[in-house]
């Protein structure tokens, strides 16, 4: 069984794990907390812990180890953190045939939407953004978070309803 021979301590294997998972974990944390810097810090810590314990962790379990560490770390740090999402809107086109009024309205709408997403519950936001921006399927999200597909559907539904109500109010 060649699987058994693969060691996480092997640098090429470690690099492979990093290339495969670091980005995904980072975005996952970003969607959850809305803070890219913190997400990167947690990713760094998680991979450092993986490196430190590389001899004890078999290759197949590395992924779940990383997610577990990332989740624990974020729980510790997120308690008092107020989430602020900073989304870049798409770069302005150099020319446009839209009226200035329309552009204003659109900008206003995007601000409202941004604010509404920041105000979502953690669980709803991570699911919603993983689906809409990362284009992950419900099944993938369910596996990632360790919840059922049904629960993902429900969170998507609630996220949308909340967003609509909030935008209507603001």
């Amino acid at each position: 069984m060649p699987e058994q021979q693969v060691s996480v301590c092997d640098e090429s294997i470690y690099d492979q794990l990093y290339r495969e998972h670091a980005e995904k974990i980072c975005y996952y944390l970003y969607y959850k907390y809305g803070d890219m810097e913190k997400a990167q810090d947690i990713v760094q810590d998680s991979f450092a812990k993986l490196w430190m314990n590389c001899s004890k962790i078999i290759f197949g379990a590395a992924k779940s180890f990383l997610y577990k560490i990332a989740n624990n770390a974020s729980i510790n740090e997120a308690i008092h953190q107020k989430t602020v999402l900073k989304y870049k809107s798409t770069p302005q086109k150099t020319y446009t045939n839209e009226s200035p009024e329309f552009q204003m309205e659109e900008k206003e709408f995007m601000d409202k939407l941004n604010q509404a997403i920041s105000g979502l519950k953690e669980g709803q936001r991570e699911v919603f953004l993983l689906n809409r921006i990362e284009k992950k399927t419900y099944k993938e999200i369910a596996e990632m978070l360790g919840i059922s597909v049904k629960a993902v559907e429900k969170r998507m539904h609630l996220a949308l309803v909340t967003l609509r109500k909030k935008i209507g109010k603001i």
């Binding site: 690099d15 990093y18 290339r19 670091a22 980005e23 980072c26 975005y27 970003y30 890219m36 990167q40 990713v43 760094q44 991979f47 450092a48 900073k86 989304y87 870049k88 809107s89 798409t90 709408f109 995007m110 939407l113 941004n114 997403i117 953004l129 809409r132 921006i133 949308l160 967003l163 609509r164 935008i167 209507g168």
Partner: peptide, 26 residues
Amino acid sequence: AYKDILKGVDKFERPVFDIEANLQKQ
């Protein structure tokens, strides 16, 4: 209203995560 929201969300961009540079830092 829902359609608008989804259209709006699609315009959002995620920040860049430079895998190779971050691997070096790591």
